[in-house]
């Protein structure tokens, strides 16, 4: 049994023009001590998938179906109170925008201590001691003094650390990080990713990392799920995916990314733009942008084919892609 098991997750939002299917049958697993990265562009459904796991979607209006199990326990049909307790205590969350995620009118000490006092029933003194430990753990200098500061008194990187301190305050089994370093400068991004990896190593949490950044994925992920138009189009270990992608979308993404360690003469550009989730094309949602598309792709939605070595690709021509990308 994996720590987190998602089975055929579907999320739809109503709109005046009919439902917008943001997530269309996503299945994946995260093991303790491992990092699964969900890689996707805007509108791919990666953040909505994470929000469905965290239980922070507004239902209704959104509709959620399928199964989300944390340590074997189904979360989707739990009563609200219980769901909130599990989301709060067993799943830690880190978001892109720390300024929006932290309460601007309370000191960070207050915010961390509140969690500990409400959820753990700690005394004021114990909660303070633990809050200092946590702030120290995320490498913020002068932790004791900085508990008295408000979120706006910290830099972007420091606020991200505080959010990590809050996320790990109840020692969750699973940490979900949605674009945790996207708003940060590269030097600060490197610090924060290093910190997340170190905390994960020490605590053995499972990490579900949501990102659009291929570089970040290559640096920290163990497994990768590539999402496009609400579906997983490719799944495998990070080595498999970067050494020889099995889906034309992944293949295109890798070829379109300039690299800092060498100069390529010409970048491959995937034509067109990601589809609008409200108006998905027929057949394979990638066929309009795909150089390998055939008539079959226009009409038949490819299932996620299981491939050797425990990987998967939702492409009718996965053998051809693998043949071309594996050296």
């Amino acid at each position: 049994m994996s720590l987190l098991e998602i089975d055929d997750l579907r999320v739809a939002f109503p709109s005046p023009n009919g439902p917008v299917n943001a997530v269309n049958g996503v299945s994946l697993e995260v093991d303790s001590g491992r990092t699964l990265a969900i890689l996707g562009e805007s509108g791919s459904g990666k953040s909505v998938t994470a929000q469905a796991v965290m239980g922070i979607l507004d239902v209704p209006p959104a509709t959620v179906s399928g199964s989300v199990r944390l340590q074997g326990r189904e979360l989707l049909n739990l009563p609200r109170k219980q769901r909130e307790r599990i989301s709060g205590e067993e799943i830690g969350m880190v978001f892109q925008d720390a300024m929006a995620a932290l309460n601007p009118v309370f000191t960070i000490g207050h915010q961390i201590m509140e969690v500990l006092r409400v959820r753990r029933g700690m005394s004021r003194a114990d909660a303070r001691r633990r809050a200092i430990e946590l702030v120290d753990r995320v490498r913020i200098p002068a932790a004791r003094d900085r508990l008295r500061d408000y979120p706006h008194q910290f830099s972007g990187g420091m606020r991200q650390r505080i959010m990590i301190a809050l996320a790990i305050s109840l020692e969750p089994d699973l940490l979900i990080a949605d674009e945790p370093t996207t708003a940060l400068d590269v030097t600060v991004q490197a610090q924060v990713m290093e910190l997340l990896a170190e905390i994960q190593r020490d605590s053995g949490m499972g990490l579900l990392l949501i990102t659009h950044d291929l570089g970040v994925v290559a640096e920290v992920a163990d497994e990768v799920a590539v999402m496009y138009a609400g579906r997983i189009v490719e799944r495998g270990t990070v080595e498999q995916i970067f050494a020889g992608p099995a889906h034309p979308y992944t293949e295109g993404l890798l070829a379109s990314m300039p690299r800092v360690d060498r100069r390529d003469e010409q970048l491959y550009a995937i034509p067109g733009a990601p589809p609008n989730p409200a108006r998905l094309p027929t057949g394979c949602p990638f066929h309009l942008r795909c150089p390998r598309a055939t008539d079959e792709c226009l009409v038949t939605l490819p299932p996620l084919h299981a491939l050797p070595a425990d990987r998967a690709s939702a492409c009718h021509h996965h053998e051809e892609v693998l043949g071309a990308t594996q050296r």
Partner: peptide, 27 residues
């Protein structure tokens, strides 16, 4: 040098060997 070494490289095979200069703090 530090800026360049902080940029993630889309090459998981090399990530164990890569030398990274981690700058302390913010500008």
């Amino acid at each position: 040098s530090a800026l360049l070494s902080a940029v993630p490289v889309p090459d998981p095979a090399g990530r164990r060997q890569r030398q990274r200069i981690l700058l302390a703090g913010d500008p």
